[in-house]
Design a protein around this nucleic acid. Structure first.
Lengths: 341, 341
DNA sequence: TACAAAAATGCAATCGATTGCATTTGCAAT
DNA sequence: ATTGCAAATGCAATCGATTGCATTTTTGTA
């Protein structure tokens, strides 16, 4: 067993020299090419691992003009330019990261969510990645359409829109909005408010579910009960408190996120209302903290982690030129005390 | 103004051909080399932007043997192998992402936090990045030491340890633990529990601050009041409820995270205790949701976002071979109702 | 005007891996 | 022994940018 002196093996050429073959042969051996003799392959693979050698991924990707990177862009409210603090995002990110690593892809995190969606196509976010996952559409539906038209493989987490031309994965927003509202109605609530930015497609769909539930119960929708609440907690609270000062008659609230619901409960309590006795509250997402809020939050559960892997599978399918259809994940009502049940 | 026909310009050579110079000249012009004539530089830069050309970062990095990537690894509890749901992590990630983008670095997110810390040195996480930021030490102090010894530029967010050989950035954990505890004592509390995994250096330091505050008030520490609570909410609640069943006498709790504090409040309330009347609770981190919990959470504020940028600056300094010292960021008590104040 | 020095530009190697197209080897059939 | 064919291996170009070392152009000075 003569051991080669342990010297650094850093390239195909080094290994080829040691083995006395050409680097083409080594390359083929390590890539399981059928061109290579089975025994040669085995020998070279053994040699590679013996010398603790792995191919230089950077050189390989450069040669093959691939990056094995997927960008992830979190769409923020146009209002709050700060980073999101909603645990929903973290869970989603975890799901995406898991999915990507399964396929040996890396995750490039888009930091400053696109001050200018205009030149997104030329940004590193797009150019350095083989595909992009957008979490949320914000109010940038058209920019997304344009990007998809340009041939960039993109998948978007969000709600459906009439003239959508990109691949979409989302929850059953209309269903979620409907069951949240229906449940409140079943509890005897009649003056039900809707809190959220209805300019985003997701919330639009939830709102339509809300309207449908009202109609089904012969309740009149009231414009004053539809309130655009920022998704950022601090701002949300201010807006909600202003609203409460107007003494608008209401006995329940459907929120477009758990975080918003928690802010709402705080604002309501602050203003002397009791939840759920005076006003019932339903959230959306079922983030881990939802069941620990007081009162525990009734909410619409989205399988966020699963959503991440669906997003990954979809964008990879796109990249590989496969046919892919939109996906709608189920959304399920989780009843806890904040709705009075 | 004769416009060149708009054809794809995808390499230095293309641009050089158009400009009638060599690609070396173009390269130098775009890199602001002093070797180049100022006017030539201006002309070529204009030409580049006119043709919407930017250098191929992949080729550039390959040639320069750099990756411009920093890996970020979130250390999880050994217990809960799942993804973290603590908003603390998301804020930290945001801070890091902002800092990195400032320096034109990319962020590689380590997905499955190191099932095997053993071969970390050979993982893509380390090999594909110029440096690594670890958020938390978990119980992997020695593995981190080894990695640093191997010459990998790493920075760790955490608490100080005697034989530490890596660069550390952290909050003033001893101070935080001390002021949380002191404040409770000042409120008249005497039987103060400490909730958290004291095997991690951060919590160890917080615990020492807790002990110091007790000693200073001539209070006897009681082993039964030191409880290892998992950082995962669901598990935390179970453990806390078991604890409460033992009817151990206590009138206050110092927690090692806000998320844990919120779980504790829920468990306490569930078991019939009133917060803060029966038992006061103090959290740690001051995550956005802390002020919205009910009762609003007294906690130790860490400037998480700032921490992110300090981590980035530190790891980059390390990469560039500069001298860097550990950083301790201040931690400040934020008093809200959960402590009875 | 001539010549040296400085400034600007070009040439060509290089990073490490992949792969189309030779070329060589091995083996069977004639 | 020769031929033919398949299997295995080698050669060398290639991806796009950077940079040390010429080489050319410009500038300054005697």
């Amino acid at each position: 067993m003569s051991k080669n002196p342990p010297r650094a093996v850093s390239s195909l050429q080094d290994l080829a020299d040691i083995a006395g073959v050409s680097r083409a042969t080594v390359s083929r051996a390590l890539n399981n090419s059928t061109l290579i003799n089975a025994e040669t392959r085995k020998r070279l693979q053994a040699l590679a691992s013996e010398h603790n050698y792995t191919v230089n991924k950077q050189a390989r990707d450069f040669r093959l003009k691939q990056t094995r990177v997927i960008s992830v862009v979190f769409m923020l409210d146009a209002h709050s330019e700060q980073h999101p603090s909603d645990p929903f995002f973290l869970e989603m990110l975890g799901g995406i990261a898991d999915g990507l690593s399964l396929h040996d892809y890396d995750l490039l995190l888009a930091h400053a969510p696109v001050a200018s969606m205009r030149d997104l196509a030329n940004s590193r976010i797009v150019r350095n990645a083989e595909g992009v996952i957008f979490v949320g559409q914000g109010e940038e539906h058209e920019a997304l359409n344009k990007l998809a038209d340009a041939g960039t493989p993109i998948v978007v987490w969000g709600g459906s829109v009439a003239d959508k031309r990109y691949l979409l994965v989302g929850g059953d927003n209309a269903g979620g909005g409907f069951s949240a509202t229906s449940h409140l109605i079943a509890q005897g609530r009649r003056r039900i408010a809707f809190f959220g930015n209805t300019r985003t497609p997701e919330n639009q769909a939830r709102f339509s579910g809300y309207e449908k539930a009202l109609a089904q119960a012969n309740l009149q929708p009231d414009d004053k009960l539809t309130v655009d609440i920022p998704s950022d907690m601090q701002h949300a609270q201010v807006v909600i408190e202003n609203l409460l000062n107007k003494r608008i008659d209401m006995d329940a609230v459907v929120c477009t996120s758990d975080v918003m619901a928690i802010a709402a409960i705080a604002a309501l309590t602050e203003s002397g209302f009791s939840v759920p006795d005076d006003i019932a509250v339903v959230g959306y997402d079922d983030i881990p903290i939802a069941s620990f809020s007081s009162p525990p939050l009734t909410t619409i559960r989205q399988s966020i982690h699963q959503a991440g892997s669906v997003l990954v599978e979809s964008v990879l399918a796109l990249i590989n030129g496969h046919q892919v259809a939109d996906t709608t994940l189920s959304s399920k009502l989780v009843v806890r005390k904040s709705c009075g049940a």
